[in-house]
């Protein structure tokens, strides 16, 4: 495997007496699709916020894209893309206005924004919707567009936090085919999901429970280890044991 893009050593985050992340250790390698799984409240969002430079760890050593999570948060933010099911695009801006806004935030030039917007809309077959409000688009389109915009600035790493929540089976598959393309463009994917069949699409997955990482391996090895027919069974076993 190539270089390390996320390196986490003994990452801990406490809120008062509550330990949200308890001494996490893991690495994500360049070009991977890394699944970050866990039950609701297991501490996934807390970990992602720290890795994105949005919150400071209580202790531990971490680098993201080679930058220190304590000191270089601005450099980290420029090297990553982020998208979630809950928040992705501004509903009351048009498709192009959203692209321009994100492009501007990431310091792309006007010309880069115009060119990348054109290419992006063409790839998605959304040229006709350039000046439509986001609010008027179906959820499936919004999600695909949000993902494309999250990688508009060609980041080395993209965080996808439940990108397919509530999305129907057909659209979900189309979305995953886009995710599969990302490593070919040199983008590592860090993704959370509650759909266990999507866990099968990842190169490696980690499973968190109550603030700790309980398992980390390829889906095939995890199924072997837990003697399970699919990732759903693996997940239920790990989450139930706690």
């Amino acid at each position: 495997m190539d270089g390390v893009i996320i390196d986490v050593k003994e990452m801990t985050k406490k809120f008062g007496n509550f330990v949200a992340n308890d001494c996490l250790n893991f690495r994500v390698y360049e070009g991977e699709i890394f699944g970050f799984l866990g039950a609701n409240g297991a501490g996934k969002t807390t970990a992602i916020r720290m890795l994105c430079g949005l919150s400071k760890p209580t202790s531990g050593e971490m680098t993201v894209a080679g930058y220190d999570v304590y000191r270089d948060t601005e450099k980290i933010k420029r090297s990553i893309g982020y998208m979630s099911q809950k928040f992705s695009l501004y509903e009351d801006l048009t498709v192009f206005e959203n692209i321009r806004l994100y492009g501007g935030i990431y310091h792309l030039t006007k010309q880069e924004i115009r060119e990348r917007a054109r290419a992006l809309l063409k790839r998605l077959g959304l040229e006709h919707a350039r000046n439509h409000l986001i609010a008027s688009l179906p959820l499936g389109w919004k999600q695909k567009l949000a993902f494309s915009i999250a990688i508009l600035h060609k980041p080395r790493l993209v965080f996808l936090d439940e990108p397919t929540g509530g999305v129907d089976p057909v659209t979900r598959r189309q979305f995953w085919e886009m995710i599969y393309e990302a490593p070919k463009q040199g983008i590592t994917v860090f993704v959370t999901t509650h759909y266990m069949e999507e866990a099968e699409y990842c190169d490696r997955v980690s499973i968190m429970s109550e603030g700790k990482i309980e398992a980390l391996d390829t889906p095939a090895n995890l199924k072997k280890k837990y003697n399970a027919k699919d990732m759903n069974e693996v997940f239920i076993r790990i989450a139930r044991n706690n």
Binding site: G38, N40, G166, H194, I236
Partner: peptide
């Protein structure tokens, strides 16, 4: 209306 969107596999069951 989609009561289990964003809910993990154990809680869904």
């Amino acid at each position: 209306d989609e009561p289990t969107t964003g809910v993990d596999a154990v809680s869904r069951k």
